[in-house]
Amino acid sequence: MSETESSGDECVLKCKKPAFVLYRNREEWKDVVPIPQADVHNAVVAINYSEKFKDVYDYLRAVLAKQEKSERVLKLTEDALNLNPANYSVWQYRREILRCLKIDLRRELVFSAKMIHQHPKNYQVWYHRKAIVEMLGDPSAELELTKNDLEYDSKNYHAWQHRQWVVQTFGMFDGEMVLCDTMIEADIRNNSAWNHRFFVMSNTTGFTPQVVAAQVDYTLQQISKAIHNESAWNFLRGILCQTKDGISGNIKVNTFCENLIASNNISPQLLAFLVDINMALAKEDQQAREKVKELCMQLATDVDTIRHNYWNYLAQTV
């Protein structure tokens, strides 16, 4: 919503594109009678549309009403979508036209990539992309597309979602673990990359003892670099819970945590993790219950004071 339209003159100066000519002034559109928007009297949240917006949508309504599907309408939908990429009906109409005219969908991928680049957080541009890839049955451009987008915003939910859809639908998991490594290397706190790691494991190797052991090693290494990093701790918890011993039964992890404590290398995430370990044992183990209380007190009074009410409550209920 923050983008403003530049006037035609500015556009000539800045991007050397020809100035936009209103559809009502175009000779080749003389055969179409534009249809203005039919809002009721005293409508609320009315928008003070720009001249260009009104013009484009007046003509779009006119061709939509008679279901014209032609090259010129395809171009019109492009103008309409540039003005409002969230108009899902325009995207729907556009797909109908693409089907009807049997347009080369590779051409559409180029347009779609441009729109995603300009509006990376818009739901409709990503859905359109998915629809076109499905129509084409060819996902070969998608890994590059999402990788480029993630370079710009490494936590963009839409990009990750599209990528997961592609690799799952078309069985393209081969390079995904390497991508996770690279992205975690670049930003160890990228929770989306950690989530992708779990997603890839779930869909490929599964959680066999060997796989979990290797991933535990990797994760402990990452935690050593940033002990406050909740993403890594959550991942560790996640993979341990996939094993029969659960969160409390991994000797390597337990020793790692003890060593951090012994070297006074303390974080809220470490203590919270130890709370979970001891909670898992607390039912049958009085010592574990005492440990939970002790950890909660430390969290409440010193290490994680923003949640002191919660830690005090946990200490009481254990």
Binding site: E3, E5, V44, V45, I47, N48, F53, L83, A86
Partner: peptide, 21 residues
């Protein structure tokens, strides 16, 4: 009347109305 910058919300006017109401 909302300014032209809100054109990108054109199909969600009801949602804007809900936020206001």
């Amino acid at each position: 009347m909302m300014p032209p910058q809100t054109q990108k919300g054109d199909t969600q006017r009801l949602m804007f109305a809900f936020f206001a109401i």
